[in-house]
């Protein structure tokens, strides 16, 4: 009996802790969501870049919608475990998800995975962040100091470039870059930017393909130098970095990693409108934009229709890379 008492005591302590930390809910007068909590699926690890970005908009949306938004993080299959969960949930607007371009495409464009869902199964709500790709080198690199000298070096020496993974925007960038600049740079894929950064700093690779958000801090720390950015205009957060399209070395390359929000296709249009408007307010909120900028992320709001069109274009581009990616039936 005494042992049972001890077990109970411990359990009670746990329960006490739990209720001490519970959170409240607010009620609302709107038809949707009518005070019911909404689930936001972020298919990436909590504390990571995508997760933090998602949680950034949550408070603003909660205020607008008058309800709680619970963020859940079912990770796996490069995001598809979470996305499949969204597509399995009812299309009633009480579940929406963060989606990432171009990460979402290989999950179904690769025939060996046998996935039947595609980008068409998603109803776009808004784009949040567009993080353009860059090429970075060590700040103390002596063999080349800018893009032109880098290309010259790459044409006559074997060069390795780290990327954040296979099928990521960095991977696509490298393919396009090699084609446009006439170089044969070898890709060394890692598991995220930290691998690329460690490899570059440690002199194990010659350069790294990454995104503005990732290199901002290292550049401020004077560890890295960004030699090119692949956007249409100069980056707001790194205005001094040369824009590839303006250098005229090769064909146009514009590539980025984007984080957006979507719900399941088939959700009633009125509900879509409510969600989209709430997102618009949250994403265009100046305070939120400033906070994101502090983390090196460039907020780039796009509405549902614009973004849906953009997503289809990106899908076409991805399809064109099937050979490069090794997708075969």
């Amino acid at each position: 009996m005494k042992k049972i008492a001890v077990v109970c005591l411990l359990l009670c302590t746990g329960v006490f802790l739990a209720f001490a930390g519970g959170s409240g809910e607010s009620s609302s007068a709107a038809a949707f969501p009518a005070g019911k909590p909404i689930t936001l699926i972020c298919p990436w690890a909590p504390g990571g870049g995508s997760d933090i970005g998602a949680r950034m908009v949550v408070p603003y949306m909660e205020k607008k919608l008058g309800t709680t938004i619970n963020v859940t993080n079912p990770t796996g299959a490069s995001g598809w475990v979470g996305w499949e969960r969204l597509l399995a949930a009812p299309a009633d607007g009480y579940t929406f998800a963060m989606i990432n371009l171009p990460t979402i495409y290989p999950g179904y464009l690769d025939p060996s995975l046998g996935r039947s869902k595609t980008i068409d199964d998603f109803q776009m709500l808004a784009n949040h962040v567009t993080d353009f790709c860059v090429i970075a080198i060590r700040a103390d690199e002596t063999r080349f100091t800018d893009l032109q000298s880098f290309i010259r070096y790459a044409k006559s020496n074997p060069v390795t470039m780290a990327t954040t993974g296979v099928g990521t925007d960095d991977h696509i960038l490298l393919q396009l870059f090699n084609a446009a600049a006439g170089t044969g740079i070898t890709m060394v894929p890692g598991n995220g930017f930290k691998d690329s950064y460690a490899a570059l700093l440690g002199k194990h690779v010659d350069a790294a393909a990454a995104n503005v958000g990732e290199v901002l801090v290292p550049e401020n720390n004077k560890e890295l130098k960004t030699i090119a950015v692949f956007s249409q205009e100069a980056s707001r957060l790194m205005p001094h970095v040369p824009v590839w399209n303006k250098l005229g070395i090769g064909g146009d390359i514009v590539i980025s990693s984007q984080r957006a929000f979507a719900c399941k296709k088939g959700t009633p249009p009125e509900i879509v409108k409510i969600l989209a408007e709430a997102l618009q307010e949250a994403i265009t909120n100046q305070e939120q934009i400033a906070k994101m900028a502090e983390m090196g992320l460039d907020v780039d709001y796009m509405g549902p229709e614009d973004f849906a069109k953009h997503a289809k274009n990106e899908e076409e581009r991805m399809k064109g890379m099937a050979d490069v990616m090794g997708w075969k039936k």
Partner: peptide, 10 residues
């Protein structure tokens, strides 16, 4: 070795 099961992809 994923045999089309999403969860096994990771």
């Amino acid at each position: 070795f994923t045999y089309r099961i999403s969860e096994l992809e990771s």
